[in-house]
């Protein structure tokens, strides 16, 4: 990835609190318009990483550049160009949604009153909060607060969004709305999004690349496909048959490119070295041995399996 096109670049980013290392030598880059996920269990260092990128915490070691600005030397510039969704919605319950939005818009330097009003209206309408704009935020549901917090993060049209657990604690419908929004922001507005989450479905659906972290350090990083290939070993073809016979199993076992065959009822799980090359021959062999193929499915590990394999295995190894 070109460094010029990277909106976020970290090099050996480390944060220590006394003897406790919360983030340990993280190096990664996030390209312009990319949705990049930092995935890890609670306490892995996700929030501390976001806080360093938002200039709320100073790195103990290493460097971080956000939008081309150093988070230590140009912290004011970084804060101006970043929109952040913090771990908690951080909204003023005694103020109305309008008052919250007005305050943060002004704090982020949106000084033109008309432009500010227009932007706030646009965002509140987008999130279906416009009819409740004059209600105190304390009367809002958790989902509404989360939407308003995201709207607040967008009020100054930031180039970069740092989102800490954006769907945490939300019902499935609200989670989906927020995921849809992030996709749209990335696709339509070209916003760079760094998403910290422990919800695997968010990362799987949204992120072009994912970094798994655990106990502050990086476990692995790559596209979800790359992560799959890292842990998957040989892919598995699941072949559902009308009936399983010894002839069929024998025919499949004797095929070139097949590593292992497991039988479960009328289903064969076949480990193969090359799915594209083996699949047509496997179907032909089964049919020629008298088998009736009802379906063939390629099994690839989900992000959840990758996560469990890499993070949980690492924990168990210690």
């Amino acid at each position: 990835m070109s460094r010029q096109l990277s909106e976020i670049i970290t090099e050996g980013l480390t944060k220590r609190f006394n003897s406790f290392t919360a983030v340990d030598r993280l190096s990664f880059e996030v390209g312009e318009g990319e949705i990049f996920g930092i995935l890890g269990p609670n306490g892995a260092g996700k929030t501390t990483t976001i806080r360093m990128l938002a200039c709320l915490l100073t790195p103990t070691e290493g460097t971080a550049f956000v939008g081309g600005f150093d988070v230590v030397d140009d912290s004011l510039k970084v804060r101006e160009m970043v929109g952040i969704l913090t771990e908690n919605p951080s909204l003023y319950d005694r103020l109305t949604a309008m008052e919250n939005m007005e305050f943060f818009a002004e704090a982020y330097g949106v000084s033109d009153r008309q432009a500010r009003s227009k932007k706030i209206r646009e965002l509140l309408e987008f999130f279906d909060l416009w009819p409740r704009r004059d209600d105190k935020v304390g009367t809002y549901s958790k989902g509404m607060k989360q939407k308003l917090a995201i709207a607040r993060a967008l009020v100054h049209d930031p180039d970069i969004l740092l989102l800490d657990e954006p769907t945490s604690g939300l019902d499935p419908r609200s989670s989906k709305d927020i995921r849809d929004l992030m996709e749209e922001l990335s696709r339509r507005e070209g916003q760079t999004i760094l998403l910290c989450t422990h919800r695997l479905e968010d990362a799987e659906r949204l992120c072009s690349r994912v970094m798994l972290i655990n106990e502050g350090g990086m476990v692995t990083m790559g596209t979800t496909d790359e992560l799959r290939s890292q842990i998957a070993g040989t892919p598995i073809l699941r072949v559902r048959l009308g009936e399983v016979s010894e002839a069929v199993v024998g025919a499949v076992r004797s095929m070139e490119g097949v590593e292992e065959v497991a039988v479960d009822g009328t289903t064969l799980s076949v480990s193969v070295y090359d799915v594209d090359r083996v699949t047509p021959y496997l179907v032909r062999s089964v049919v020629m041995a008298g088998g009736m193929v009802q379906s063939v499915e390629v099994l690839e590990p989900s992000l959840e399996e990758i996560y469990l394999k890499l993070v949980v295995d690492e924990d168990e190894a210690e």
Partner: peptide, 14 residues
């Protein structure tokens, strides 16, 4: 206490 301080600190206010 109301956990509103983090968003405030994240703004470009000194």
């Amino acid at each position: 206490e109301r956990k509103t301080i983090e968003a405030l600190l994240a703004t470009p206010l000194t």
